[in-house]
């Protein structure tokens, strides 16, 4: 037996590290979501180069939501900083060994890439806005008339999306002092979690925009009012099954990566086994299995499979569950990771 007694009592450090609260999981989730939206939008732009309406939900609404989500995520990150007025210091240097430095520069490139993707098809998606601002039509025409530019925007979105998604995982994975985070698999895990969240979000938007006789009258009124105010065109519901199918693939890969992540810890050192125990049998086991694996992955996987085989209607439920599961994954991993420690394994 080893017993440690310490006189240290530093705030946020003792009795166990808790320096990151809700802001960081929210930032990581929104970063992953934006990464997924960029990759899907980029692929749609590359595959559907001609200006077709099917591209609208992925290539316009996705990137526009991505810009909003990214701004919200960066605001959450800003709220977490203890020395807020010095935030600009991030952009006075580039530290190649720091994942956070890589991330801050990647985020700077993500904005123009997302904006360019959104502008390519904006006049088709929201004609009312284009009529009010003719410059949007000129920009869209300029982009779509140049095949190389369209391809460059598409590939830039895919590449930056992959970098952003992996970065959100590597940010934690590079911190070797916390055994639970110490896995390179966190990068692809957060990337595919972000992809599934993005596909689920776009699928949810399509479900909402489709006519539905069983929808309550007030919800129908709200949605039609929103469409009228924004001047947006109705979305093509044919993209729904494609997105649900893609989401099922992403969820399956995420589940496999989660299994490999835990397997890697269980076959590693005592500290890593103990860290994995936090999720498997420890204080985070119940929320992890219920909210992340059950409600966040398995149930939506089942629901979307039933939707794709036409046994049930397409509903908003899988989208809500996947988004909730994505947030739960980050909240639980950030909290449990801070609790995992080299010293604790001595006992």
């Amino acid at each position: 037996m080893i017993e440690l007694t310490t006189t240290r009592h530093n705030p946020l450090i003792d009795p166990s590290l808790h320096v990151w609260e809700w802001q960081i999981p929210v930032y990581l989730f929104l970063g992953g979501l934006v990464a997924g939206l960029m990759i899907i939008a980029g692929i749609r732009l590359i595959v559907l180069r001609p200006s077709r309406r099917e591209a609208l939900v992925c290539c316009t609404i996705g990137p526009l939501l991505g810009l909003a989500a990214l701004s919200l995520g960066m605001f959450a990150l800003f709220l977490d900083l203890a020395h807020k007025l010095h935030v600009w210091r991030l952009y006075t240097t580039f530290e190649p060994t720091s994942p956070m430095s890589w991330g801050s520069w990647i985020l700077l490139l993500v904005y123009p890439a997302l904006l360019a993707n959104a502008l390519a098809h904006l006049p088709e998606a929201i004609p009312a806005l284009a009529r009010r601002f003719p410059v949007l039509v000129a920009i869209s025409d300029f982009i779509l008339a140049r095949l190389r530019l369209v391809l460059a925007i598409g590939f830039a979105n895919v590449a930056l999306g992959v970098a952003l998604g992996i970065y959100t995982g590597i940010l934690l994975g590079a911190l070797g002092a916390r055994p639970l985070w110490n896995s390179a698999l966190l990068g692809p895990l957060f990337l595919f979690s972000g992809l599934s969240a993005a596909a689920a979000l776009l699928h949810g938007i399509l479900v909402l925009s489709a006519p539905d006789e069983e929808r309550p009258a007030f919800a129908d009124f709200l949605l039609s009012s929103l469409a009228r105010v924004s001047g947006a065109r109705p979305l093509d519901p044919n993209a729904g099954p494609v997105l649900a199918g893609a989401d099922n693939s992403f969820l399956t890969i995420e589940l496999a990566l989660l299994g490999l992540f835990l397997l890697g810890h269980l076959t590693s050192t005592a500290v890593h086994r103990q860290a994995a125990g936090l999720l498997l049998t420890g204080p985070y086991a119940a929320p992890f299995w219920v909210f992340v694996v059950g409600l966040g992955i398995l149930i939506p996987l089942l629901l979307q499979t039933l939707e794709l085989t036409h046994r049930i209607r397409h509903t908003l439920a899988p989208a809500v569950l996947v988004l909730f599961g994505g947030i739960a994954l980050r909240v639980i991993l950030v909290a449990a990771g801070q609790e995992s420690h080299w010293f604790h394994a001595l006992n």
Partner: peptide, 25 residues
């Protein structure tokens, strides 16, 4: 003056030797 208080160094230290000063660094 360069520190933004991101707390990455606190999480990176296996000895938990750092803390955030009330002034933010």
């Amino acid at each position: 003056d360069l520190c933004i208080g991101c707390k990455a160094c606190l999480a990176a230290c296996p000895y938990d030797a750092r803390f955030i000063h009330p002034d933010g660094y």
